[in-house]
Structure formats: C-alpha cells, structure tokens
Write a protein that binds this DNA or RNA. Structure first.
Lengths: 101, 101
DNA sequence: TCGACATTTCGATAACTGTCGAATTGATGT
DNA sequence: ACATCAATTCGACAGTTATCGAAATGTCGA
C-alpha cells in the first residue's frame, strides 16, 4: 500500500512490492485485467470486465482486491460503479525494477 | 540451447510463454534464483544455491524444473553437477514484452 | 419507500503447489 | 566392485488460492 509521492519522484519498489506484483500477475485473469486497463485509457466498471470475461462477480471482486493491494490498480467508487485505473507510475517502476534485476 | 535465430532476431513471446514466466517468477525462491543467476555470469551448481538457501534438494530441483519449463533457465549436466544459466535472450524478450503490454 | 442493479463479503469447496523424506539414478574416485 | 556425492523422482502432506452461491451493502430512479 504505497503512498502518493509516486507522482513526482521516480519510484523504487521494495522487494516485497515487487514480489506482490509478480504474484498478482501470475494469474491469467489478473494479467488480462491489467492488459485491458492498459489499453483503454479510461476504463471501467467491473461490469465492463464481466462482459468480456466469463467470471462470477465475487471472483472478479477478489482479483481486483488482489491487484489493488499489490498496488497495480486504483479503485474509486462512483455511485453504483467502481472505476478502475491502472497505476502507470507503479507499472513503470515495476518494469524499471525488473530491468535492473 | 538457443538456436541461431534466437541470437539474431528479436524474440517474441507467446501469451502462454509470458504467463508461464510470470507464474514462475511469482515465487520468492524462484525469483531469488533468477536474481542470483543474473548477477553471476557463470553460475552454478544446485549445491551453490543450496549453500545460500535453506531448502531441501528435492524442493530446489522442483523449482529449477519450473524455471526451465518456463524457458528462463537452461540446465546442462556436467558430470555430477548441473550447470544453470539464465537465458538472457528470453529474459530480454520478456521485459520487452511486458513493456509493450 | 420500494425495487433493481453494482459490488463486496462470507463460507465452503476443489484444485493447485511448495515442501520434505525416502528411494533412485548417475557419476566420480578409491 | 564399492562407497560417496549430486541431482532427480516419487508419494504424501500442509498451506494457499481461485472459484462460486448466497447474503449483505450501497446506490439510484420511480
């Protein structure tokens, strides 16, 4: 659960964060969610995802919580819906981190 | 053993390969193995790894098989020992792949 | 207020996987 | 041949997790 200084400074991930992200991505549906979010700039509600994935609402919710606690996505509630956004700074930091390995 | 085309051409991973790699990395000990192999250019036998990791031989063997079948490492047997090498072309392709995501 | 809808939480279950000890295979040196 | 060592395979077990249905929570419109 990283804070919010990631907008300005170049972010470095802790070993724990790196592991959490890798674990989160090691799941086909979660990777697909990230892929989808990375392609569309402004998506979306869980419903949108469920339209594309044969998955129960409870399961999707579980995966989203996992991605959120790994720090990869941000979930904001807007009325009935949950807006999901990829945290691109984190993603970038993750890639940089792996590149340094 | 990487073929000639792997050495010259830019390697593209299939979605299956990408998933296999992510799954393989989503395990602390396996990530540590990869990290270790990436640092030392020409390591090493399983024994070397076991010296640094409190892990049973059977467990290590299991993890190595996993890494190998994900395509991340190459195992060649030399006498009693197994020489482990990181397949850097694959690793590079993996990073590139994630960057394109 | 009421009913419909989106999402989360809960509890249970099935599948997966990391772990180890024991037995096995294969190589080396005596 | 034998003993020893490195590594793999096997079988079992424990912990983890993906999955779902059902119930709960929260939101909006009528």
């Amino acid at each position: 659960m990283p804070s919010e200084s990631e907008l300005t400074a170049a972010l470095t991930l802790s070993a724990t964060q790196r592991m959490a992200i890798l674990k989160a991505l090691g799941e086909p549906r979660r990777l697909e969610i990230i892929e989808r979010l990375s392609h569309t700039d402004q998506s979306s509600a869980c419903t949108d995802l469920r339209a594309c994935m044969p998955i129960a609402a409870a399961t999707l919710s579980h995966h989203l919580k996992e991605l959120e606690s790994a720090g990869l996505i941000h979930i904001t509630r807007e009325g009935k819906f949950a807006r999901l956004t990829l945290r691109r700074e984190i993603w970038q930091a993750f890639l940089t981190d792996l590149g340094r390995l």
